[in-house]
Design a protein around this nucleic acid. Sequence first.
DNA 1: TTGAAAGCGCTAACAC
DNA 2: GTGTTAGCGCTTTCAA
Lengths: 335, 335
Amino acid sequence: MTTARDVAAAVGLSVSTVGRALSDDPRISDATKARVIAAAETMGYVANRAARMMRGASSDVIAVIVPDLSNGFYATIAHALSGALTSNNWQLMLGESADDPRIERRHARGFVSAQVAGAIVVPTARPAPETVQLLTSLPHVQLLRRVGQLKPYWFGIDDTGAIRQATEHLITSGHRRIGFVGGTPDLPTGAARQRGYREALADAGIPAPDELVLLGPPLSMDHGRAAVARLLALQDPPTALVTASVQATRGVLEELLRHEVAVPQDLSVVGFGDEPGWSWWGPGLTTIALPIQQLAATCALWLLDRLAAGPDAHTAAYSSVSSGELVLRGSTRGI
Amino acid sequence: MTTARDVAAAVGLSVSTVGRALSDDPRISDATKARVIAAAETMGYVANRAARMMRGASSDVIAVIVPDLSNGFYATIAHALSGALTSNNWQLMLGESADDPRIERRHARGFVSAQVAGAIVVPTARPAPETVQLLTSLPHVQLLRRVGQLKPYWFGIDDTGAIRQATEHLITSGHRRIGFVGGTPDLPTGAARQRGYREALADAGIPAPDELVLLGPPLSMDHGRAAVARLLALQDPPTALVTASVQATRGVLEELLRHEVAVPQDLSVVGFGDEPGWSWWGPGLTTIALPIQQLAATCALWLLDRLAAGPDAHTAAYSSVSSGELVLRGSTRGI
DNA sequence: TTGAAAGCGCTAACAC
DNA sequence: GTGTTAGCGCTTTCAA
């Protein structure tokens, strides 16, 4: 590896002159610059980034943590983030947490040790204290999920509003026994979505019996599957179903097909998110479409903007909430 | 950022002792080690990678280039790579090329400047010369696609065999007019898949008229859509269809629904890959399932192994070919 | 068993 | 306009 010192020796100048010439410092004469640049080129000189970073140069890498890329929802997020970052000349370092705080911590360590300039995180329900400490040591934003320990910068969707909308649609269609398949309230998003369901029912004066509210782990299709089986086995099964996560929806859809449930005749279903294929599932899935691409892109740009502003620029707590949109297809009908 | 010096000050020892304690040097007493480790933990100490690299340590980052994460196929690949890398304590730096050599080059530059230890690449059809030069300067493997300019290490699928299998299945079922919707032969994979189609037909003594062979850009759903429209408009439309890329399949499936084509009564269809939802598309999609998870994981492990072997270990050209598997569902039938 | 000190390649403050 | 020097955080001699 050729170093600046080698180049300096070759042209008979000092290392600092070489450094300045290559960074186009105005104090260096054009003749010298030309000589240095030519030498550097022929010698195949490439600046050592590690050394630069030791001098405090900030990296051009942004870290991203998502729960699971094999989940189309998060893959789309990663895609949008990647697009926004690279088109602004940033690199992306990626980690999947699998919703496991220990894996999340491992990534956080890796990121800090790799000296990333900032991080965009979809946090797990309870990040390890060390994770919090590590992330807090660098500029970061929370995406989709929000935990109190991390900095109060958050880009997410209106979870309560989305599920409320879905539930209200079913209520308006005349349904009274409406099942809810969602995530545990550990995750703020899980709690918020359940709230949307309960609020909509309460507003309409409809009870929400426990047997109709099925909660499970966040990224699990199995929970969706099991929930369908449980609901169908009830003495008085629901006439409609609201799902409150992408994976839950997936599981529900598969299981409904397996049980050959007549949708929407016997059961109306509203999904969460809008994944490829859902438009052709059975009669077409009525669902809450989420503007996750814009959300992710905006989030990335916000972070880059903050980085550009410098570490001193004190930023007040900030949150941006996007709304979902009900897409009507064939899986719901009035009764 | 907490440094080793900070930790040393906290425990009243020297930097070198701290360094040794953390690297489990046998010369340090267990008591001291414990003290240092405890302090490092509470203080959130993470070794500065840049400094380590200046001392000759290689980075723990592997670069990955895929065409497009919003494509479930590549998202799965990224997921598998990420799993294999992080479980071996490597970080992943990710770039999406969008199949554009210029974007690919930008990523290659970023990777080299970020001093990644190696790269896993799904290359574009014609990488820029600079990209080739940059990638060649570091250990790398090609995944799925293979271009001659890069090093001859490749993990991919038997494209020809996969499509041949799909085509033969249709021939065996009695079909004679079989359409082919695939990618341009620019990409070796596109060429190989088309070969599989032609070979199967040739073996059965069936002609492959140009009007039935529709080629388009690799990552385009639109091509799949347009192809369906074109084929249906033919005077003598095909009775069966082979698709030769995931995105083409997606487009075809959507368009068939839009045109309300009776599958498999009027048209048999074999897809490429097996994405979520394809099992419930119409009568269930008969398709070629690809072992991309294992493929990606194996590829990552191979690269890590080579890195562990050191830069001197000369490796002979290597390629690993995985086969697809025909999954029979409802979208094909005999005539 | 621990400490002191050198030095990796680079940049920036301070000479001249 | 160019050179000298210090020091980023770490590992690794060399001392003690």
